[in-house]
Simulated assay, not measured.
Amino acid sequence: MAGASYLRRRGELEVYFDRTAVDAWKRFASDEPLSRIRATVREGRAAMRRALAARLPDDLAGWRVLDAGCGAGHLAVALARRGADVTGIDLSPEMVRFAAETAPAIAGPGRVTFRAGDMLAPEHGRFDAVVAMDSLIHYRAADAVAAVARLAERTERAIVFTVAPATPLLLAMHMAGRLFPRADRAPAIEPVAPRAMVRRLSAEPALGGWQPRPVERVDCGFYISHAMEVARR
């Protein structure tokens, strides 16, 4: 059962990504020109998708993968092209519709199914691996660890996800964001040091059979994120 703070934040994120910012996120997913700042975010997100995908085998035939917080579906499509049966879950029904409408045809055995909903819902079934790119960065560290533990209950091999690393630049950007008018403000991120996250994950009893570790940081202009991995021992 998800905690109250997780559920409260989930509701805020659903409103933001499905109503307030959906058009902006569609532009990020397209090839249309962006401002210099937003272009660095697009470039950084593409680099992080590559970093997360690199943690999984090149041949994913026979694997079932959950893309938790799939957005426009770019990572889900990349994994399906390796042969995986991918379920892309996002809180925003509008982004799910956009992902389904714009996803290219997949050659080979892989496929993608997009659904709107909560990434932690057990009805999605079991998976060989989970990828969660920038979908936990808005949750408190304790809630993010609990979410990873919930996902681990239904995952056979590995979970790769991102945290917002507590760098001076990111913390400054985070504080500056609080100065914007509330109508223009994205839901706050929750910066955490990757090594501190490893300690939290290691101390979580439900993850006793898993090995957590930081993997790779992507630092590209206004996009800063750190890939993490928990894998079966």
Rank of each mutant, 00 (worst) to 15 (best):
P109Q: 13
A164K: 04
I89Y: 06
M175E: 14
M175T: 10
P165N: 11
T155S: 06
H124P: 02
I159C: 08
A144I: 07
V160C: 11
V112G: 06
A141N: 01
S135R: 00
E123D: 04
R178Q: 09
R97G: 09
R154V: 09
H138T: 01
A152Y: 14
V163S: 11
R115N: 06
L170I: 03
G117Q: 02
T167M: 14
E153M: 10
A116N: 10
A176P: 08
E101I: 13
A176Y: 14
A158V: 15
G110D: 07
A105V: 15
G108E: 00
Y139P: 01
A100E: 10
M173A: 12
E156N: 07
F127P: 14
V160D: 08
R126L: 02
A99T: 05
G125R: 13
M133W: 02
T155Y: 05
A84Y: 07
A116C: 10
V130E: 04
I89K: 08
A172Q: 14
L120I: 05
P109W: 13
R150F: 00
A147Y: 00
L151C: 07
H138C: 02
A146T: 10
P168A: 01
V148H: 13
P93Q: 02
A147V: 01
P122Y: 12
P109S: 13
F98P: 04
A107L: 12
A158E: 10
R178W: 09
S92V: 03
L171H: 08
